[in-house]
Structures are given as structure tokens and as C-alpha cells.
């Protein structure tokens, strides 16, 4: 089975809000000093889902990402978890927050990688969280799409997918090739072994530019965005928290009275 996993490098979403800074002029987020970027949470789960399939069946995993040269780190992370190969899609023309452009670039890279049985994406990115690249990519690749998976297994007809819904799970069967977006309910991603980390360090990560994957440059030009961010602000949160003084027991009694009065 050939699996392609699309991953993204993002600013660490767990940083304290005090470290979060933006530039309202350029509508960009300023990366906090000393905090390394990480792989987007859901994408790491998508990798985990791919690795579990590889544990059970014969599978080859290829990870791809769009980003600056620093983003090769997430490909190395993917390889350390279990991916066999990875490509960095890096070109100044790729810089965009538009989901259609992202999906288009990914689709062209996937075309170059060749035949696939399964494409996995995280359900949304931990930074801008547009939540649609997977679905758009599925349409571009003209394959069936299943969203929000937490478990994937192989059956006669293709794949059996457990999909998260608000009050439980749906079980779906979908033929391959297909695209599945993965939700956090997959569970914890594996910790890479020391040996795999070494392997990932040594592995060359090919870099593909627009010309390498037959991108029509005109489609990436400004003006082709489907959506446009026209403003970015950090909401003001005024702290009006009433702090209870006293011993823990006194505080407990005070909280209890308030809770009961409100219910």
C-alpha cells in the first residue's frame, strides 16, 4: 500500500498567550524567539495512523510538506516516526494562506510521486485552521474523501474507517485510492526510536520547486486566492478575576456557596 501523508510545520500552539505576537500590518504572526516550530497536531496523528497501517500491512509512507527550508524538520520527524521518504515543497511562489493554492501544490507533488492508495491529511492545521485543504485536495485528485478518522483498517473492499461524530462514531467503507482526514482521537503519536532519529538525520530530503512539479505559475499569482485575510487582531482580555483570599478550606467553602447560588 502506498500512503502519502501531508504535513505542516506550525508555530507551537501550546505557547503561553503572552508570547503570542502579531504584526497587524502584514497580518502575520511573529514567531516567538526560542520556541521551535512543531508539526501540526493533527498531521502528527495522520502520520501515526499511517504508521499503524505500516505496522500491520506492507506499506510505504511518503511525507510531503510545503514550507521554507526549515520545514524539512517536519519531514525528518515523519521519517523518524516511520515514513520511508519525504519531500519538501519549497518555492517563494508557494507562500500563501489560501487553501486552494495549498491543495493545488500538494496535488501536483502527489502527481509527481505517482500511484497512491491513500492520502492522509490532518483535519485542520493548528495555526490558521482553515479545515479544508484535505477536502479540496480530494476533489483535485478526484478520489473519495472521508473526514475526521480516528481508526483505519484494510478490508476486502478497500478501507474501513472509524469516523468521529459528536455523539459517537461512524464506521465507513471506502474504496482505494482515497483521501482521509485524521482527527486527534487517533491517540498518541509514537515516540521515535533513537535508531530512527539517526536514520532521519542522515536521510536526504529532496526539495521540489514549482518547476519540478509542473506548477502553472499563473495559478499561484496574487489575485487567485479564494479567500483573503484582511485583518488580524489579538483580542483584548481584561482580567477581572476575583481572587479568593484565605486558606484552601475557606476558599472551598466560598466557592461552594457561589456555585450553589448559581445553580
Amino acid at each position: 500500500m502506498n500512503i502519502i501523508v501531508c504535513v505542516k510545520q506550525v508555530q507551537d500552539p501550546e505557547i503561553p498567550p503572552s508570547k503570542f505576537k502579531i504584526d497587524p500590518e502584514t497580518k502575520q504572526v511573529i514567531p516567538p524567539a526560542g520556541v521551535p516550530p512543531v508539526i501540526s497536531v493533527y498531521d502528527e496523528r495522520a502520520l501515526e495512523a499511517a504508521c499503524r497501517l505500516k505496522d500491520k500491512y506492507k506499506a510505504k509512507i511518503v511525507a510531503i510538506t510545503i514550507g521554507t527550508d526549515k520545514a524539512s524538520e517536519v519531514i525528518r520527524h515523519a521519517i523518524s516516526m516511520g515514513a520511508d521518504d519525504g519531500y519538501l515543497l519549497c518555492d517563494p511562489a508557494f507562500e500563501s494562506k489560501d487553501s486552494f493554492k495549498t491543495a493545488y501544490i500538494l496535488s501536483k507533488a502527489i502527481e509527481k510521486i505517482g500511484a497512491f492508495d491513500l492520502v492522509l491529511c490532518g483535519r485542520q492545521a493548528a495555526d490558521w485552521g482553515a479545515g479544508q485543504v484535505g477536502s479540496i485536495l480530494g476533489e483535485m485528485l478526484t478520489v473519495p474523501v472521508v473526514s475526521f478518522a480516528c481508526d483505519i483498517d484494510v478490508v476486502d473492499t478497500g478501507l474501513r474507517v472509524k469516523r468521529v461524530v459528536s455523539d459517537g462514531y461512524e464506521i465507513l467503507e471506502v474504496p482505494m485510492p482515497c483521501l482521509i482526514t485524521v482527527s486527534s482521537e487517533v491517540g498518541l503519536p509514537r515516540l521515535p526510536s533513537g535508531m530512527r532519529i539517526m536514520l532521519a538525520r542522515k536521510k536526504p530530503i529532496p526539495v521540489w520547486k514549482a518547476t519540478d512539479i509542473n506548477i502553472e505559475h499563473s495559478l499561484l499569482e496574487k489575485g487567485h486566492e479564494h479567500t483573503e485575510i484582511i485583518g488580524l487582531v489579538v483580542p483584548e482580555r481584561k482580567s477581572e478575576c476575583e481572587i479568593i483570599k484565605g486558606t484552601p478550606k475557606e476558599a472551598a467553602y466560598e466557592i461552594a456557596e457561589r456555585l450553589v447560588s448559581m445553580l
Binding site: 500552539p13 503570542f20 497580518k27 493548528a126 495555526d127 485552521g129 479567500t227 485583518g231
Partner: peptide
């Protein structure tokens, strides 16, 4: 909300 609610983006659709 974007960036986990750290910021609020104003967005328009060009399509």
C-alpha cells in the same frame, strides 16, 4: 479565531 484563539482574523471571499 485563528492560532487556537490567540488571534481573530477578518476574512473575505474573492470567489
Amino acid at each position: 479565531p485563528v492560532f487556537g484563539g490567540n488571534a481573530i482574523a477578518t476574512v473575505i471571499s474573492n470567489r
